[in-house]
Deep mutational scan, measured.
Amino acid sequence: NLYFQGLKYMVPGARVTRGLDWKWRDQDGSPQGEGTVTGELHNGWIDVTWDAGGSNSYRMGAEGKFDLKLAP
């Protein structure tokens, strides 16, 4: 699974964008943008601060869902 392989790169400072299971509307800005991981992966959740200004926790394994992917 590509998403599980990418988890080791989901570290503080990593750049991310919305992924396969995104369901959080425009939390990442409008139009959709990139963000920066600000915390360690914990119980399948990870913290992100978006360039647009907001921050929140997103699923990276929790509930079998992956809200994020590494930015290109």
Rank of each mutant, 00 (worst) to 15 (best):
Q32G: 14
P31R: 06
D67T: 03
S30H: 12
T36A: 04
K8D: 14
W45Q: 01
R25T: 12
G19N: 08
A14Y: 03
M60E: 02
G13M: 05
Q32W: 11
V16I: 05
E63T: 05
V16A: 01
V11S: 08
G53Y: 04
A62I: 05
F66V: 05
Y3H: 15
G13C: 10
D21K: 03
M60F: 09
P12W: 09
G13F: 05
A62L: 04
Y9R: 08
L41Q: 06
V11P: 06
T36W: 06
G44S: 01
W24I: 05
R59E: 02
K8R: 10
G19L: 05
T36H: 04
M10E: 05
Y3S: 15
W24K: 04
Y9D: 11
K65S: 09
D28Y: 04
D51V: 04
V16G: 02
D21F: 04
G64C: 15
L70P: 09
F66L: 05
G29P: 05
W24Q: 05
T38F: 07
A71K: 09
G61S: 04
N1F: 08
D51T: 03
G39F: 04
P31I: 09
A71W: 07
Y58R: 01
G61N: 03
G53T: 02
A52W: 12
L2G: 15
V48Q: 00
R25Q: 14
L70S: 04
L70A: 07
D51R: 02
G13A: 03
E40S: 12
G35N: 01
K65W: 04
Q27F: 06
Q27K: 05
D67V: 02
V48P: 00
H42L: 12
G53W: 00
G44F: 04
F4C: 15
N43M: 11
N56A: 14
M60S: 02
Y58D: 02
L41K: 05
K69R: 12
D26M: 08
S55W: 11
W24L: 05
T17A: 11
D51K: 04
S30M: 12
Y3F: 14
L41E: 06
G35A: 01
D21Q: 03
P72C: 15
P12I: 13
Q27N: 07
L7H: 08
H42A: 10
L7E: 08
Y58A: 03
P72A: 12
K69G: 07
H42R: 13
M10S: 03
K23N: 09
S55G: 09
K65M: 09
D21R: 04
T38A: 08
S57V: 10
E63H: 10
G13H: 05
V16E: 01
L20I: 13
E34L: 14
E63I: 03
G54L: 10
I46N: 00
Q27M: 06
P31V: 09
A52C: 15
P31F: 08
G54Q: 11
D21P: 02
T49N: 09
F66R: 03
G29R: 05
K69L: 13
V48A: 01
L2T: 14
L68W: 01
G6R: 09
D26T: 08
D26R: 06
V11D: 04
R59D: 02
K23S: 10
L20C: 15
K65C: 15
G35C: 02
G53R: 02
G44A: 02
T38S: 10
K65H: 05
E40A: 13
G6Q: 15
V11H: 09
G61E: 01
D21W: 04
G35D: 00
W45T: 02
V16P: 01
G35R: 00
G61M: 01
D47S: 12
M60C: 10
A52R: 10
G39Q: 07
L2I: 15
F4R: 10
D21N: 08
G64A: 07
G6P: 08
R18Q: 06
A52S: 11
L70G: 04
E34K: 13
A71N: 06
N43F: 10
W22Q: 04
K65Q: 07
G53K: 02
Y9A: 09
G35P: 01
K69D: 11
G54P: 06
G53L: 03
M60V: 08
Q5C: 15
G44D: 01
H42N: 13
H42D: 10
F66M: 07
P12T: 10
A52H: 14
L2K: 15
L20A: 11
G6K: 12
L41F: 09
Q5E: 15
I46R: 00
G64M: 09
L20K: 13
G6C: 15
P12Q: 09
Q32T: 11
G61D: 01
H42S: 11
N43T: 06
Y58L: 03
Y58K: 02
G64V: 03
Y9E: 12
M60T: 01
K23Y: 06
S30C: 15
G33L: 07
V37M: 02
T36M: 08
A52G: 09
G35H: 01
W24D: 07
N1T: 09
A14T: 11
V37N: 00
L2A: 15
V48L: 01
G53F: 02
Q5V: 11
M60D: 01
T17W: 05
N1R: 09
A52T: 11
P31C: 14
P12Y: 10
Y3W: 14
G39V: 05
T17L: 12
G44Q: 02
N56G: 15
R15Q: 01
W45I: 03
D26L: 07
E34N: 10
S57L: 14
D21H: 11
E63G: 12
L20R: 14
E40M: 12
Q32R: 11
R25I: 10
K69C: 15
F66E: 03
W22G: 04
L68D: 00
V11A: 09
G19S: 07
T17D: 01
W24T: 07
Q32F: 13
G44E: 01
F66D: 01
R59A: 01
V48N: 00
G33E: 06
G19W: 06
V16C: 03
G29K: 04
R15I: 03
R18Y: 07
V16T: 00
N56Q: 08
D67R: 00
S30V: 14
R59M: 02
G29V: 06
G13K: 03
G44L: 03
N43W: 09
